[in-house]
């Protein structure tokens, strides 16, 4: 069994207008950062998981994202895994 640390990013689906992202981008544009584009606001979840290998850990977390961590109707998720030393 291996031990992984996961970093999950949840953000609104690309097809959904992210009003919070837009508002932050307006604020950035009015504070000397007009070069910034496509601002999206999301959530960051960190957790640890035991699994046989990275593939299984990813599959389990993908299931967890679809079930609770994200709402697939409105959100996308991205999982990054880092294997920890035993």
């Amino acid at each position: 069994m291996k031990h992984f640390k996961a970093s999950i990013t949840v953000s609104l689906r690309k097809s959904i207008l992210d009003v919070q992202g837009k508002t932050v981008e307006h604020a950035l544009h009015s504070t000397n950062f007009p070069m910034i584009k496509n601002t999206r606001i999301g959530k960051h979840v960190e957790l640890e998981i035991d699994a046989e290998n990275a593939e299984k850990a990813h599959a389990l977390l993908s299931d967890a994202c679809k079930t609770i961590i994200a709402n697939p109707i409105m959100e996308d998720y991205h999982i990054e895994l880092h294997e920890m030393e035993a």
Binding site: I16, V19, Q20, N71, I73
Partner: peptide, 16 residues
């Protein structure tokens, strides 16, 4: 909607 008993989802109000 979260439980799937109704379709769709409720997003943040557009005015925030």
């Amino acid at each position: 909607t979260e439980s799937g008993l109704l379709p769709g989802a409720l997003l943040r109000n557009t005015s925030l």
